[in-house]
Every structure is written in C-alpha cells, then in structure tokens.
C-alpha cells in the first residue's frame, strides 16, 4: 500500500504531462486533419514558445538597459503571466511562414512534406542555437506557483497542479472553439471533406491558415507551461512532436476525446516510468511509440486515418 501511495505524485505528474501532450496533439491534429500533412516542425514551435517565455521571464530581451531594468523589476508573477499570453502570439508568425511553405507541398508525394518540415525543424533549431546558445535554461516560476506542499505524507509539486489547470483551461477553450463555433464546424467539415466545404463557399486556404495559427499557438502555449518541468534546450522539439504523433495514432485523427484520452495515456506512461527510473521516462515515450505503431495502425476513436500512406 505504501508503494502505491508513493506512486500518486507520479500519477499526478503523468496526468499533468498528459494534459499538455493532449494540448499539443490537438493543435497537431487540427492541422493534420485539414492539411493532410504531418508537420515535423510542430515541435519547433513548441520549443520557440518555451524560449520566448524564457526571454520574457528571465528577462533576456533585446531592449535598452533602462527599459529592461524596468521590466525586470516587475514581479515575476506578472512576467510569467505575460509570457503565457505573449509567447504564443510571438510564435504565431513562424507558424504562418511554415504554413505558407507547406502549401507548396500540398498534393505532392508526402515525402516532400516530410522533408520540408524536417528541414524547417532543423532550421528553427539552428536559429534557437544561434540566438540562445546550446546550454540548458530553466524557466523561472513565480513563488506562488512553485515549491511543494505535503499532503497524505507525500510531497507534491505545486507547479504541476498549476500546469494541469492551465492545460485544462486551454483544452476547454479548444473544445469550445471546435464544438461551439462556426469556425470549428468548418474545420471539422473541412477535415472530413475538403471539396464540399469549398463548394459551400468557404475559403479553405484561409481556413487552413487560421487553423495553423491556432495549432501553433497551442504548441507554443504548451511549450511555456511545460518549460519549468522539462527544462529548455535546443532539441526539445522532438520530445513534443513524438507524443503528438503517438496520441494521434492512439486516438485517431479528428476526435477531441481521442486526443484527450490518448494524451492522458501517454502522459501516465511517461509519468509512471519516471517513478521507477526518472532518467528513462522520456525513453518510455519512444518505446511506447514503437510498440503502438507496431501493434496498431488505426486509432481507438477516429475512423479513416489520413496517415495510412
């Protein structure tokens, strides 16, 4: 019983991770559904979110010293809040450029889309290295959200609860957009059948751009929220795009709850394996991917998978 109880914090960790993975996966899935292209650079957008957040919070900004000093004097709580809001907005233009580039590969052999997005991911990683260097960074977290507390004789991390809460809020927002707005209906319809949507007078290209922006901002948001847990390093993008793909394979393309539950599953595997060997928790994600792809190709919820090529 004692060991099971000790697992609880790791379970919570897993759920938190899972929610954030689900968030990344949702953005990834919205784009995938509408563009039918896998964006290997999605993780880079996640990474940029973390780096921009760091720049805002640390702060390390290219501003004149007195302005920077004034900003640094602002309480960390406000700076962190600013980062959560601003970082996704700052990353959005990168998403726009990426969408523009991906347009040219639309309809061609999927190999080109893979090579293109892979190349962009490498370029973005190089950009990150150039601007911020190769060392690891830690995103400072305001005192109110950091530290730990004791409950049930166990130590819990405060930030994890905050992160989970932020993730839930964001997911609720995505749900509302997808299920309750006309935009969401257009996205769902367009993902299912791009021709009829156009024949109804909807500009599919513009729709794709907006979806891309949304997906980008979700990835960047997740990057900000996950940064204090994972640390910030140039190659962190891969660790975001792989779970996104894994969740799509598990939950299918086009299902909100598939992504949510798939995310929780993956998060819990990573979180719980962290209980036994913290260093190997990320590895468990890759092993899970290999296992899942080997065993099944269709998702649990979604129907036809556009990935089956």
């Amino acid at each position: 019983m004692g060991t099971l109880l000790n697992l609880l914090p790791h379970l919570v960790n897993g759920i938190t991770l899972g929610l954030l993975f689900a968030l990344i996966a949702l953005g990834f899935m919205l784009i995938l559904g509408l563009m039918e292209q896998i964006n290997l650079a999605h993780g880079s957008l996640f990474a940029l979110g973390a780096y921009f957040a760091y720049a805002i919070c640390a702060p390390r900004l290219p501003l004149p010293p007195d302005v920077l000093g004034m900003w640094a004097a602002v309480p960390l709580g406000w700076r962190f809040a600013a980062a959560v809001v601003l970082a996704p907005i700052l990353v959005a233009p990168f998403g726009l450029v990426l969408e523009r580039l991906m347009r040219r590969t639309y309809g061609r052999d999927p190999l080109y889309g893979l090579l293109l997005t892979f190349g962009v991911a490498m370029v973005l990683e190089e950009l990150i290295r150039m601007v911020w260097g190769t060392r690891d960074y830690i995103l400072p977290v305001p005192r109110e959200m950091s530290g730990g507390f004791i409950m049930l004789d166990l130590i819990w991390s405060t930030y994890r609860f905050w992160a989970a809460a932020l993730a839930i809020v964001a997911m609720a927002g995505v749900w509302a957009i997808v299920e309750r707005t006309r935009f969401g209906a257009m996205v769902k319809a367009g993902a299912h059948d791009s021709e009829i949507v156009q024949a109804l007078g909807i500009d599919l290209t513009r729709l794709r751009v907006w979806v891309f922006v949304l997906g980008t901002m979700l990835a960047a948001f997740a990057g900000v929220v996950l940064a204090p847990l994972w640390g910030i390093r140039p190659h962190m993008g891969v660790d975001a795009v792989v779970p996104a793909f894994l969740i799509i394979v598990l939950g299918g393309v086009g299902s909100f709850w598939g992504a949510a539950i798939g995310g929780l599953l993956v998060g819990m595997v990573v979180g719980l394996s962290g209980a036994y060997a913290s260093e190997w928790s990320m590895l468990s994600m890759y092993l899970l991917l290999i296992a899942v792809v080997t065993l099944r190709a269709r998702g649990l919820f979604g129907k036809k998978s556009v990935l089956e090529v």
Binding site: P110, F118, Y286, V293
Partner: peptide, 24 residues
C-alpha cells in the same frame, strides 16, 4: 523488423523513435 512493412510518415516517425532510443 519493425518498420519494413510501412512507408511514409509511419516509417519516418519510427526511424526517429529508434534513433532517439539508440541515442539515449
């Protein structure tokens, strides 16, 4: 053994996963 029956994106992601595992 694991990936030869696939192509495209599944193949790509699997090679990434294996690469990461070996690197790890």
């Amino acid at each position: 053994l694991f990936i030869s029956h696939r192509r495209g994106i599944y193949y790509a992601l699997m090679t990434i996963a294996f690469g990461q595992v070996f690197w790890f």
